[in-house]
Amino acid sequence: MQKKINILISSVGGQGGLSLSRMIAEASAIKGYRITTGEILGMAQRFGSVLSFVRIGINEEVYSPIFSKGEADYLLCLELFECVRSLSYLKFGGWVITSTEVKPPISASLEGKKQVEKVPSYLEAIRKHSEGNLISIEPKLVKEVVGTLRAINATVLGAFIMLSGVFDDDAALEGIRKVLKSERAIEISKKAYNLGKSIAEKAMPIHADNKS
């Protein structure tokens, strides 16, 4: 197999989007894939919009750390506003995995309910844009099963692996281990990862194209 996979991770600063990008990078390297990511660190990490570009080359080189609109095979979102904001990056036929957590930006809240009223339609807009190639993750469920939302990036990672089969569980878990420092955080993330897999399994069509 020879292919390039473009992944865009869209999140709010502080949610773990950058860690997710690094987890995928570490796991990809374990599999011997070529990897490059482009991220924005610094001021943007605090409650601002954060985009991470991840590119994996399987038996193929990847050069540019960024890609353009319409080139993401996978759009992984940790928040709904940000997911809608990033939709134009999605490739025709690409998949979206999103947490349905909503963190309205201050600019929206300052307008009262005018903006937030539209939020329930966001998920539908994402579904429409991705032509149904959508796996959504309820933060409520994550909190119930895992006990915290801190590891929701690992849930998204689990869903992504189940859907794409880009690498195996061992590589994914090793990726998590390389990024997180404490054993406790790793244990929580494992739980979150497995939840993501089971959510994706239920949501996926029986003959998902990407699962080969």
């Binding site: 409650f47 601002g48 809608v84 134009s88 490739k91």
Partner: peptide
């Protein structure tokens, strides 16, 4: 050939704010 569409809903910007 790259096929993409603009998002249909425009969402408000999220400039980095002062932290809680």
């Amino acid at each position: 050939d790259v096929v993409w569409r603009a998002e249909e809903i425009q969402v408000p910007q999220r400039p980095p704010p002062l932290c809680p």
